[in-house]
Structures are given as structure tokens and as C-alpha cells.
């Protein structure tokens, strides 16, 4: 069973990541997983080598003509007037230490950078809190904290939901997921994640969750609302 569940990004997703085809939220969650996963780094290196060889292969790459009006000589002339760098630019190191589940964890670097905009935790359902990040205009991105023993109401996804576990674990009908696991769920999954020991995750949603059961129904408009708000903030900021 659960052949469609992967604890790592698929090759297709890794390839899109390498090619720069993913929106910011998805790029960040893949990057954060890679910071925690040697095997995906190795796989990404291979995929990048393939991407580069097809990029330079004239038989594969379309021979596009760029607009002839552009004066490339003057472009080159102005470029070579620029100063060159003598050393790598000093990288600004951002560290985010997060206290969670009787412990403190250091976020993967890329998530620490993203979290610089500030985390505003809001409780969304019993024992579950989330802090949204505005990263692009296509997805809703958030840290999710599930207190020990909490359960997300049964829901389906309109689009896909990608989750990276940072601390603790959660489980659903298809398995149990622990730190560094990368989980993708789409419309086919009708699931109810719960967390016995509690967990901290980072998640990227293509569209809002749709709750399907009982009292949780009242959450529906709320979810659409926060989703739209996240989108409009990204567009107008």
C-alpha cells in the first residue's frame, strides 16, 4: 500500500526545483528538505548535471532568436566597465532558534531567512497553531505546530499540500512522518493527520484545505479567507 507516499521530493519535483521552475514557497520547502537530506542533495547534483547538458545541447534546446533590435555590443561594453568581485559576498547569517516540545531547534537556514519577516502564531483548531509566511502569489506557506495529542479535522485538498516535518512526528492513514520527512498530498487524499507526540512542520498549500467533517465545517470560510488574505498581501506588498 501507500505507494504514492514519498518521504522525499519526487525526481520530477527535484528537477523542477533545479530548473528554477517552482514558485518561491515550493522552492523553499524543497531547499529546506535538502539541507536535511544527503541523498536528495546527491540526486539533485545528478539532475543538475543533466539539466546543464541539455541546456547547452543545441539538438535539445530550442534555438531561439533573441530580438535583433538589441545592441549586444553595447551591452557587453557596459558590462566590462563594471568592477569585479574579489571575494565571495559576505553572507548574512540568520539563525532562528525555535522552542518547541520541550526542546529548541535550529531552523534550516533557508527557513530561518524566510521567518525573518516575523511569525505571528494563531490557533486554528484544538491544539493546532499556524504562522503564515508570505512568500509568493501562488501558495499559502505556513509553519504548523500540532500540540501532543492533537488532530486536524478531516479534510481534502483542492490543490496539493507539501509538508516538511521539522520536529516531532505526525501520523495519518498512510503512515507516520518524522523530522526531515517530505510529504505531498493532493486532491485524492482524504486524510486526518494527528500527532501523538506533537510536531512542528512547514507546509506549502496550492489552495486552501477543505474540511469535510462535523463541526469543523465552520472553519471553511475561515480557511478561504486566510488564503485570500495571504494571496492579496503577496500581491500588494
Amino acid at each position: 500500500m501507500n505507494t504514492d507516499v514519498n518521504m522525499h521530493p519526487s525526481s520530477q519535483l527535484l528537477n523542477q526545483f533545479i530548473q528554477g521552475e517552482l514558485a518561491t514557497g515550493k522552492s523553499i520547502i524543497v531547499s529546506a528538505h535538502m539541507e536535511l537530506c544527503k541523498s536528495c542533495c546527491a540526486k539533485a547534483k545528478e539532475l543538475e548535471a543533466l539539466a546543464v547538458s541539455s541546456w547547452v545541447d543545441p539538438s535539445i534546446a530550442p534555438q531561439l532568436e533573441s530580438p535583433s533590435a538589441t545592441d549586444y555590443s553595447s551591452m557587453v561594453a557596459s558590462i566590462v566597465q563594471s568592477a569585479q568581485l574579489s571575494s565571495e559576498p559576505v553572507e548574512e547569517v540568520v539563525e532562528v532558534q525555535m522552542d518547541v516540545l520541550d526542546d529548541s531547534i535550529k531552523l534550516p537556514k533557508v527557513l530561518a531567512k524566510a521567518a525573518q519577516q516575523g511569525l505571528n502564531w494563531k490557533q486554528v483548531a484544538g491544539g493546532i497553531s499556524e504562522a503564515q509566511l508570505i512568500l509568493d502569489d501562488e501558495t499559502q506557506c505556513e509553519f504548523i505546530y500540532m500540540a501532543p495529542g492533537s488532530k486536524v479535522p478531516v479534510h481534502t485538498h483542492k490543490g496539493s499540500e507539501t509538508t516538511l516535518v521539522l520536529k516531532g512526528s505526525f501520523e495519518d492513514e498512510l503512515g507516520e512522518y518524522k523530522a526531515s520527512d517530505f510529504i505531498v498530498r493532493d486532491t485524492q487524499h482524504h486524510h486526518q493527520p494527528g500527532s501523538k507526540e506533537g510536531c512542528l512542520c512547514f507546509a506549502v498549500l496550492d489552495s486552501p484545505l477543505k474540511f469535510t467533517q462535523g463541526l469543523a465545517r465552520f472553519m471553511n470560510p475561515v480557511n478561504s479567507y486566510t488564503f485570500k488574505k495571504a494571496i492579496s498581501k503577496a500581491v500588494t506588498s
Binding site: S31, M34, E35, L36, C41, S104, I105, K106
Partner: peptide
């Protein structure tokens, strides 16, 4: 930040403190 130059090196471990 997303494609750090040193990627492919040792993966970060999530550091814990009580």
C-alpha cells in the same frame, strides 16, 4: 539562499536543547 553555493555538503542536523 535557496540554492546555496555550498549545497551538497554535510546536511544540517536539527539541534536540540532542553
Amino acid at each position: 539562499d535557496i540554492w546555496p553555493p555550498e549545497s551538497g555538503g554535510e546536511p544540517t542536523t536539527l539541534v536540540h536543547e532542553d
